[in-house]
Amino acid sequence: MFNKMTRLVMLGSLSLGLLSGCATSDSAAVYSKGQMRQAQTVQLGTVVSVNNVKMEGQNNELLTLGGAALGGLAGSNVGGGKGAIAGGIIGALAGGFGTQAAQRSMGSKNALEVTVKLDGSGRMVSIVQDADIPLSAGQRVRLLSGGGDDRVVPY
């Protein structure tokens, strides 16, 4: 159905998409290179509640494009002439949407919604982050803010 070169190109595109989808972290313990040597505001507080939540997986455009390409190729083998064109279009749409849905559901992971009461002002804030740092109600914590990435870490 597919020649060897087509299979290699599709496999390479999908592999690149999978690798680039693993390049980010939502962990409070992991800093990106751009966050290094940047001042952060530190506020002390107490954890009021910790709730387990699911963090939805991220869409990778390259992987979605690969799914659309595969769906288009598969759909174009339906019928002949105009039927093959229509099948290719429908297959591309189905492959792209199907790949996006799979990425969101399979890429979801456990996370924590941490609500903190800040010292002094008594203001309450809530942050969702990876569930890789154990936090519990009543625990003293630091709320680190800066550069658009806030995190809650033990004090």
Rank of each mutant, 00 (worst) to 15 (best):
S136P: 00
P134A: 13
I85T: 11
G72M: 05
V141H: 03
P134C: 02
K82V: 13
M124A: 07
S126P: 00
I85V: 15
S76M: 09
G67N: 05
N77L: 13
G72E: 10
Q129G: 06
A102N: 09
A69V: 14
I90V: 15
G88W: 02
G122E: 11
Q100P: 00
N110S: 14
G80H: 13
R123G: 12
G71Q: 07
G80T: 13
L93F: 13
A92H: 04
R142C: 00
A69S: 12
G107P: 04
A111D: 09
L144K: 06
V125N: 06
V114I: 14
Q139C: 01
G107L: 03
F97D: 05
G146A: 11
V78T: 11
L144C: 10
V116W: 01
A92L: 06
G79M: 08
I133K: 05
D150L: 02
R151D: 10
G107A: 05
A94Y: 02
A111V: 08
V114A: 02
G80P: 06
D119P: 01
R151F: 03
D150W: 00
G88F: 04
G107N: 03
A69Q: 00
Q139K: 10
I90S: 09
G88E: 11
G91Y: 00
Q139N: 12
N77R: 14
S105V: 13
I89G: 06
A137G: 02
R142E: 13
L144S: 11
R142V: 05
G107E: 14
R140N: 15
V125K: 00
A102M: 15
G148N: 12
V141C: 00
R151H: 04
R140Q: 15
L118R: 05
D119Y: 05
V114T: 08
A84S: 15
G96K: 04
G88A: 09
G148C: 12
S105T: 15
T99R: 04
T115E: 13
Q139I: 06
S108V: 02
A102C: 13
I85A: 12
D132P: 07
M124D: 13
G67Q: 07
I127S: 11
Q103Y: 03
A94F: 03
A74D: 07
G95V: 01
V78M: 12
G75D: 10
L70V: 08
G66C: 13
D149Q: 10
S136K: 12
R142T: 02
S108E: 14
G79K: 01
G107R: 02
G91P: 07
G87H: 04
L112I: 05
D130I: 02
L118A: 02
G87S: 12
